[in-house]
Design a protein around this nucleic acid. Structure first.
Lengths: 339, 339
DNA sequence: CTGTTAGCGCTTTCAG
DNA sequence: CTGAAAGCGCTAACAG
């Protein structure tokens, strides 16, 4: 059996009608007799006719494909966002291509170029931590290709955006530590290029200030990545401090898990001597001992919402310059690594 | 600025030549004068000409897109396979669309239909655990669409395949437990529809037999999924046994992590009273206390190799019926949860 | 209600 | 070396 290539012309010929009639019959066009319509539909089914989407794409200059650009997909955080996107978009008959920037501006730019070359209908982008120039994103806008930025902000790029209210999540987390008696609270921060990291850092400082606790720069370290191994060095440094902190607020669960490892290894008690709190609610986090307190983020919902905004722009008849910025709410989850 | 739509005809008109000449100039066709070629190339660059891939797709009936179908992408296992695929395929100018079956035969079938509709050039598939009928895969073959099956086997489907030698990995793991003194070794197995689960189970039994240890059905339980929570119930059951096992070989790290949690909660020592070993080498596994012994699988390499086989078929001039089955080697990693 | 025509952007014979 | 023409599969005016 060969690749079934029944075309509209094939069935037109067999029925002795014109291709346009077939096309109309297949699309419930009003101006068509019931008889020919039935005949066409029946034959189409019999021959297992499948419309050639490539022809449609060319005709409509549309691919029903969106491009999703993320730093990486191996973390639960981004992969569950992708799930949300997928679940919104697939039922509409649109597919997605995924590109990973691996936190590199150059790769990100290349991916966007590729995706533009294949004519994606729109972009869903969470920029890399190295992205400081936004020329590639602005170029998307200039060409009137729909764009939604999610999770990580690019200040200065006017586009639909979907975020989590990081500030609120982080503030709650730090305040929780304070309320449970911690006074020397350290923060293992993320790269300052990331809006998310900046917001969490700011919330950390503000929460301390609100409770009249001095912000001590020795307690603020920056990590280079988001996996457990990136939490190792900063935590060792904190443990070596004259005044060892009594709590650590880590940029995310990955880093927090690395921190817990080092701390337990050092024979320091969690909580009691040091409380720990992470961010993201990684599915592994509740299975550590102690289980990790964290801030849950609505990742799946963020994916859905971003995709919804995008598809709205994609399907809009006319170019709508209105810009929407949405914010979703995180949730503090107290587990065993804090009181 | 509008979407730049310089076409080959545009530049032909401006130069007073024919579109075909432009096309030739742009493709280093031999029959073209250096002068016109230069002129064309220069103008093309100036106008930022980008070939319209949609037109090419229609013409060549090719999309330079492959379809990747996996059970899910939120696990490190599959997401790192996807990384391997991506890294092999992107440099060749081909993109991939990803579909998640969520371990459902029905969804898997639907994804394949969608991907066939958008004319992917080939398929890379790891079937769902519920997939027992292979009609959808056979249909791919029948239509001469290149197909590579990876990680999970579909016996009876003749296609290129790439696996990890699960048997060897599992055998080593169990033998390691035996050699370190364990005699009542339990196995939390995966769904028997999965070739991977069957091979691991078989290796488990054979390793015991080789060392004259009786296979006890009470020690063989099946879990319903691959995350820590799926390890909870089976482990509790094992702990409740009259003769509590002195080791557990879990189908994967996720389940092993759930098992460790329950065991620690019960105040039973790991190792000492119970040794644990998982499978997959999840990046979190080394950060538990004790760190989890496991069997590492070359996931990234599996993705690369699968993609390489696929692209070979895709790019083959003529249909090559030869079938390749490749096997990659896992590696036992001893950490703290076993001696 | 139906057929004809044109065209999406490109490549590829086939003639010059 | 270059141009004209055909066609990939489909839709959408425009005529009947």
């Amino acid at each position: 059996m060969k690749r079934s290539n029944t075309t509209i012309t094939d069935i037109a010929e067999k029925l002795g009608v014109s291709p346009s009639t077939v096309s109309r019959a297949l699309h419930d066009h009003p101006a068509i007799s019931d008889k020919t319509k039935k005949a066409v539909v029946r034959l189409a089914r019999k021959l297992d006719y499948q419309p050639n989407l490539l022809a449609l794409n060319l005709l409509q200059k549309k691919t029903n494909t969106i491009g999703v650009v993320v730093p990486e997909i191996t973390s639960y955080f981004f992969s569950s966002i992708i799930n949300g996107i997928q679940d919104l978009v697939n039922p509409m008959g649109v597919n997605m291509v995924i590109g990973q920037s691996n936190e590199s501006y150059k790769e990100e730019k290349k991916i966007i170029q590729t995706f533009r070359a294949i004519n994606v209908d729109g972009f869903l982008i969470s920029p890399s931590s190295k992205t400081k120039k936004f020329d590639h994103l602005l170029a998307i806008k200039e060409n009137n290709i729909p764009l939604v930025i999610f999770d990580r902000d690019c200040e200065g790029v006017e586009a639909d955006k979907v975020f989590v209210d990081e500030y609120s999540g982080a503030f709650q987390a730090v305040e929780h530590l304070i309320k449970t008696g911690c006074r020397r609270i350290a923060h293992i921060a993320g790269p300052p290029t990331l809006s998310t990291a900046r917001h969490r850092l700011k919330a950390y400082k503000n929460a301390l200030e609100k409770h009249k606790i001095k912000v001590d720069d020795d307690y603020i370290l920056t990590c280079k990545g988001f996996t457990p191994k990136h939490g190792i060095a900063p935590t060792k440094q904190l443990l070596g401090l004259e005044k060892c902190p009594d709590a650590i607020f880590a940029i995310n669960d990955g880093v927090a898990i690395g921190a817990m490892y080092v701390i337990k290894e050092a024979g320091v008690k969690i909580p009691g001597q040091i409380s720990i709190i992470g961010f993201d609610d990684d599915p592994h986090s509740s299975y550590f001992k102690p289980s990790l307190s964290t801030v849950w983020q609505p990742t799946y919902e963020m994916g859905m919402l971003s995709a919804r905004l995008l598809m709205k722009k994609v399907n809009a008849k006319s170019h709508d310059p209105k810009i929407r910025v949405e914010s979703l709410f995180p949730e503090l989850i107290i587990r065993g690594s804090s009181f």
